[in-house]
């Protein structure tokens, strides 16, 4: 029997993988993908809780999360392209003009 706890464990694992990805990866595209992973962890949570509470609110919330994640990814890739044109790199550690 798969209970709500299993879904929450998967979601927590996704959150952890996404966090580690954001912290350790150098390629900005991969970092953006890791952020998507975190948002999908949220979606798993929301859908599971939606089923658990027997209501649709969580599913509606998840659709909003998906839509907003798309907007954010679109802007992220746009900024990335602008940066690639000027600097010729998508590596996070080569982005170092601004620091103390």
């Amino acid at each position: 029997m798969i209970t709500i706890n299993h879904y929450m464990a998967v979601s927590a694992a996704l959150l952890l993988i996404g966090t580690v990805g954001v912290m350790t990866r150098r390629n900005i595209v991969v970092i953006l993908m890791s952020i998507e992973l975190i948002l999908n962890a949220v979606n798993v949570n929301l859908i599971a809780f939606s089923k658990y509470h027997n209501q649709v609110t969580g599913q509606v919330f998840a659709i909003f999360v998906i839509a907003v994640a798309v907007a954010e990814a679109a802007v992220g890739l746009g900024v990335l392209i602008a940066m690639f044109r000027n600097k010729g790199t998508v590596q996070a550690d080569e982005v170092d003009l601004l620091k103390w």
């Binding site: 954001v22 900005i28 970092i31 952020i35 000027n86 982005v95 601004l98």
Partner: peptide
């Protein structure tokens, strides 16, 4: 370049 970089950092950490 600096504006690009600022936007990229803000977006990644913001997301």
């Amino acid at each position: 370049k600096r504006s690009n970089e600022a936007a990229m950092k803000y977006l990644l950490l913001g997301g």
